[in-house]
Design a protein around this nucleic acid. Sequence first.
DNA 1: ATGAAAGCGCTAACAC
DNA 2: GTGTTAGCGCTTTCAT
Lengths: 328, 328
Amino acid sequence: MATIKDVAKLANVSTATVSRVLNSNGYVNEKTKERVEKAIRELDYLPNDVARNLFKGRSKMIALFVPDIMNPFFPELARAVEDVTRDHGYTFILCNTDDDIHKEIAYLNALQQKSVDGIIIVSSTITTSSIQKIKVPVIALDRIVSSDLPSITVNNRDGAREAVRYLQAIGCKQIAHISGPEEVSNTALRMQGYLDEVKNEHWFKPSYIQQGEYNPDRAMEETKKLLTKHPEIDGIFVANDLMGVGVLKAAKALHIKVPDDLSVISFDGIALGEMITPSLTTMAQPIYDLGARAAEMLIKRIKNPNQKIINEEIEVELIVRESTRARS
Amino acid sequence: MATIKDVAKLANVSTATVSRVLNSNGYVNEKTKERVEKAIRELDYLPNDVARNLFKGRSKMIALFVPDIMNPFFPELARAVEDVTRDHGYTFILCNTDDDIHKEIAYLNALQQKSVDGIIIVSSTITTSSIQKIKVPVIALDRIVSSDLPSITVNNRDGAREAVRYLQAIGCKQIAHISGPEEVSNTALRMQGYLDEVKNEHWFKPSYIQQGEYNPDRAMEETKKLLTKHPEIDGIFVANDLMGVGVLKAAKALHIKVPDDLSVISFDGIALGEMITPSLTTMAQPIYDLGARAAEMLIKRIKNPNQKIINEEIEVELIVRESTRARS
DNA sequence: ATGAAAGCGCTAACAC
DNA sequence: GTGTTAGCGCTTTCAT
């Protein structure tokens, strides 16, 4: 690996001059500039970023924390963040946290030691104090960590209300909810939205809510329990698409026809939802946009850390597919 | 951020001594060691990795190139690589290349400038020469780039043969193939395996092979063409699961019942395959293991670059699900 | 057992 | 316009 010294020697200039043409700042004669560029080409010289970063105290790297990249919601988010940050010259570090606070803290330390310039976090477990210890900009994505952390989310509660109203509009009379883990802010909000719409209905019973986890299997189990106990249910609002897959499976196992006997709507809008049969009606988040916005916001904060904290909410959109149908 | 100097001052020793206790090498008195450790704790000191790396010429970072993390095959691979490398103290960089040689080269340069310690590559476009320019260890994963690059793959050809033989065993008489892009080595091998089994059958016609791309939509189109032209087809071997989704959709659109009228088997074993209806019979790759093995191999090469080049092949496994059934 | 000092490769004052 | 030099934070000879 050639160094700046080699280039300087070959071009018969000082390293300062080479540095000047490298960063195109300061005056440098056109002739000598050409000599330096020639030397750079001949030596296949690339500046050593580690040395640069040591001097500058930054690294041109950003990191994304997700619970688990294998959850199909996250790859699109990750892709968006990578695209945007790469376009701005950043290198993209991916961290799977499993929503484990110890892993998160370990990552935070490791990244700080590497002078990472900023972090985007999808987390339900991390605490504000551990974030404040490191002094790089952090953005919360998809889930709210604390109101004094800038964030990008969707209007989960309103979206949930809209989903439930949609089921009502197509004629569902008894609407249940398969909820997500309660410690996750966004699914908690989705349950709130569900309750907003149904808690005063004469038919509503607390047992119309079954709590699941972010996987189809658990959702299937809970749905089986629900539908066995409450065969009158004709509509289900599910906390997310992945769980929606389990709800569909449960209905199939119980020989309940979707959408004929039961309408199912979920939340997220992941690609999986249109691949399965029946395809899932859903309140779709603009997933890529969420990631892209978070990345843009982060980069802005890296350039100017004294921006005011904003909690940006993006709209969800109803996508009607095969799992819902108007009842007669 | 406290530096090693601050620690040294507080502990009344030189920076050399602090460094010694940090790296636990060289002699250092038990008493002074305790003083230093106390100072470290009091200052919340964490060594600056950038400075360390500048000195050592390495970075404790590894990178993974994938075409697109949104393709559901890759998140599991990425997860495995991240898990294994993190356990060894490495930071994980993810690069989406879109199988674009220019992006790949840009990444290669950027990573080299950051002194990345090693790279795992899933690529159909990259050339050996561009890899050899950078002198860090590189492992090819999932697809063979060149025989002088260490690699981890599955036995695609044998797996494909086994898939076709399985269709024959359950009584399929005319078996077609929806193939992947021809420039991708592994799907080319799968087509070879298909041909190995059927090219001498009296019923075989070259038009039983339709070439698709790595997405359900294109596979659906191709399958519609195929089944319209050749209604006698009663078995299809599909190059991968994602395309298998499209094949199932095509069959549904044409009112062809799977598995009653048509058996479908694909390749990969991604989670999606068991979520859809009918669930996909497939030749499953041990995806996580592939990634983990590649990561282990890479780390070994980082520690000792003079290992002999091996091309490791891992076995695939038939998983029978709902999309295939014995014909009567 | 510990310290002084050089140097990893680069950038930015500061001179001239 | 260009060169000299200090220094980013760390590790490692080389002395003592």
